[in-house]
Design a protein around this nucleic acid. Structure first.
Lengths: 202, 202
DNA sequence: CCCCCATTTGACCGATCGGTACAGCCGGTG
DNA sequence: CACCGGCTGTACCGATCGGTCAAATGGGGG
């Protein structure tokens, strides 16, 4: 066991949550240090810059969620169940975060990426990569659904893109409207996009 | 005729473009003044704060685009043509802005709204209102398409929401990927969402 | 002609920004 | 015990932030 996985990990976690709550630009290094109970000296001992911390925090966060994706998209499950599980996961994460922070926060990755895409090329490209990962799971599930005869759409790639885009868009609206109700239509919309047979009007 | 519609309007225009290019947080009042050829004193003579300027700039910009929406969504046009025209408008605006600034900038409104939604309640609610306006046009066109028998979807409201969400999501991806190619699937995706008959596989 | 008032000018403010310097602390190792 | 290197604590840096202010400007109306 590692005894001191403390300050560094705390900084990563606090940074991710603070930036998700508000925005990269409006969260200061001092804010992060204060809430993490760390000193600035420690901060810059572990991370070369605020941008580097943000990057690592977001990648670390993906590693923390990835197991849940693996479980939800397990090929043991029926393809349409995986997709429904993903929709439910998105809604659950939003509901939990909203309960914790008091406001609907939307997609952490797309918020950071949108804010910095035109200013910091490294953050842009790393964010692009991170945001492409969930789509892969989705595409696989859709391909399996097609093969199983559960979806009428022809090409899994474009269908996954559309389903992912509708999810991103709804998350933007959820944040802007500060309301979870937009997400009620997420699963029906996704199911309709892929031409799901059993779920179409569930 | 008003002779001096100069400084104030210039500030509004420059502010909108700079914030769209990068982000609210990373554009300073000095930046805006510099590029508008104005002094800080003039800035604060016309606007009480940076946030107030941003708000007014974004509403002013909508007023500038609104006539184009009126034309595109004119009820003289066939419903599906209106929707196709809207998709083309979105792509044209993105292409023009990308040509001008050198980077794909996505949706100005959703970027600003996402960045500030959890921090400034007035900007959040005004942005929510602004972002609801295009959806109204869309909904009307879809309703007309249903009535004309050109669309198989049942309810125009939810269909407009989905179409709008897919557009928002694709614009986020376009910005993050710094590529216009994502938007090639915008019209097909929208047409499929509303169950358009003539355009389904165009 | 002169006054008036909207506008302009540029210096200035305190706060805060991201980042640095460096002295100490502390547990492990010889 | 001495030393060492990872981590902490804190004072500090120049730059820049959003915002203020008072004096100058200048064109239109009496």
């Amino acid at each position: 066991m590692k005894k001191p996985p403390n300050t560094r990990e705390k900084l990563l976690e606090v940074a991710f949550n603070l930036i998700w709550d508000s925005s990269y630009g409006s969260v200061s290094v001092d804010d992060i240090c204060r809430q993490a109970g760390a000193n600035k000296g420690s901060f810059y001992h572990f991370f070369p810059s605020k941008a580097a911390l943000a990057l690592e925090a977001y990648e670390e966060q993906w590693n923390r969620v990835r197991p849940e994706f693996e479980r939800i998209f397990s090929r043991n499950l029926a393809p349409l169940s995986r997709i429904a599980g993903w929709c439910a996961l998105v809604r659950r994460i939003q509901a939990e975060k909203a309960a914790e922070y008091g406001k609907v926060c939307g997609c952490a990755y797309s918020s950071l990426a949108t804010e910095l895409a035109t200013q910091d090329e490294e953050i842009r490209s790393r964010s692009e990569k991170l945001m492409s990962l969930p789509r892969k799971y989705l595409e696989e599930a859709i391909a399996d659904a097609i093969e199983a005869g559960d979806a009428t759409v022809k090409e899994p790639g474009p269908a996954a893109n559309r389903a992912y885009a509708v999810c991103l868009g709804m998350l933007v609206e959820a944040r802007v409207q500060n309301s979870l109700s937009v997400l009620e239509d997420l699963e029906p919309a996704v199911m309709e996009i892929i031409g799901a047979k059993a779920f179409a009007s569930a």
